[in-house]
Design a protein around this nucleic acid. Structure first.
Lengths: 211, 211
DNA sequence: TGGTTGTTCGACCCGTGGGTCGAATCGCGA
DNA sequence: TCGCGATTCGACCCACGGGTCGAACAACCA
């Protein structure tokens, strides 16, 4: 029992200093993302986050420069989950647009159901300072562009039918971005079912003849 | 030019006392709804609202008991726009479920594009105190029930096809609730086009055979 | 023209919460 | 075991914003 549990809330592991530092940053971010999502950014106090981690407020400032930076990092991680996931999106030309659409939707649903994705989608970026906001908005614009690109391609190769690409893409993002408002990972429905049903829903809306 | 403009920001009119009072309340609410929507509830200060109206903060307290009450009234008006609009929803049994679905969607889009509807959908109800929140949540639940009811009815009378009513209704609400995040009344697209396209989108998703 | 009620505001109160500082403690290498 | 950097925290600062108070001002009636 000598040095058994050093009582540190971070969890154990003998990684070297810098590694520990990065690890702890991640833990803070995950926790913060969850609380931001539940209570909202401005309703969340740094003390809330600190208490959830069993640490003190100043300790947070050892890892992050400000409350904003914490939110910003959460958003960045959410965006990265899509723009450069480990398996990159198949490039245009590979497979039909319809297949790429399905892949995009599945990936987006997965993202939106994760802590950081949920945080990205539920807490507005207007809380951030100008430079950070600009980056987040840029990232989201890029993601918007992905879907629109796929729809355009599909309209060209005939695997997708829709009147208005801009409106259609917004309806689709809406259906997906709303998911965190009602979906809970512990609930009856699991993520795969959700994903399948969402793809089916969109698929029908885009592929079938009207009437 | 005698008593031309009394410099009151409220606008003129010689209505009697109580009528004036109600009118001014409405003006406050519309303004507040707009600012809450733009900046978010917690990011909005009462001074912001007061300045937008050219009045002082204490004057707001002459018309409302608290910042919460203002938000609550906005939400209430948003909900009322659907649950008891001037033309009531046709009761179950009148027309096909599909027709009633279209009517519901059109009405919901109209609501969500209005100041109060936008405010309802964009500012979470968790800002409100328990009793007010309960009422708002109840109202939203009622609206949820309307759509689910229509879908169930449609599944029965065969005018609607869908795998999972709960998920489907959430996708639909998502597509509509997201509208305020990107739609602007002054933009190129008008509300009617939006409404028509949304109905078409959902219609296809619900009526066509898969594949 | 005075009194009474309805309406508005300047000035203030005070709790909250983001952020800082300096001291205490930890943990590893020598 | 000592020493030094890495890490943590108690106590504090202070701006901001919701909310209040009492006085001024307006409007209507006699």
């Amino acid at each position: 029992m000598a040095k058994a549990t050093p009582k540190r809330p971070w969890g154990e592991g003998i990684q070297d200093r810098g590694e520990q530092y990065e690890l702890k940053r991640q833990v803070v971010l995950r926790t913060a993302a969850r609380i931001y999502t539940q209570r909202g950014f401005h309703e969340t106090t740094l003390t809330d986050i600190a208490e959830a981690l069993n640490i003190s407020k100043p300790t947070l400032y050892y890892y992050f420069r400000s409350k904003d930076e914490i939110l910003f990092e959460c958003h960045r991680l959410g965006i990265e989950a899509i723009t450069d996931g480990e398996t990159p999106m198949p490039p245009p030309g590979e497979g039909t647009a319809r297949e790429r659409l399905h892949e995009f939707l599945r990936r987006y649903v997965r993202m939106v159901v994760d802590d950081f994705g949920t945080c990205l989608v539920m807490t507005g970026a207007n809380a951030l300072g100008p430079e950070n906001r600009a980056e987040v908005v840029g990232g989201r614009r890029q993601i918007d562009g992905m879907l629109r690109g796929i729809l355009e391609e599909g309209a060209r190769d005939g695997t997708i039918v829709c009147d208005d690409i801009m409106l259609t893409s917004m309806f689709i993002f809406g259906a997906m971005n709303w998911i965190p408002h009602w979906f809970h990972r512990e609930g009856e429905i699991n993520v795969d079912t959700l994903s399948v049903r969402l793809v089916a829903f969109v698929d029908r809306a885009l592929l079938s003849a009207p009437q």
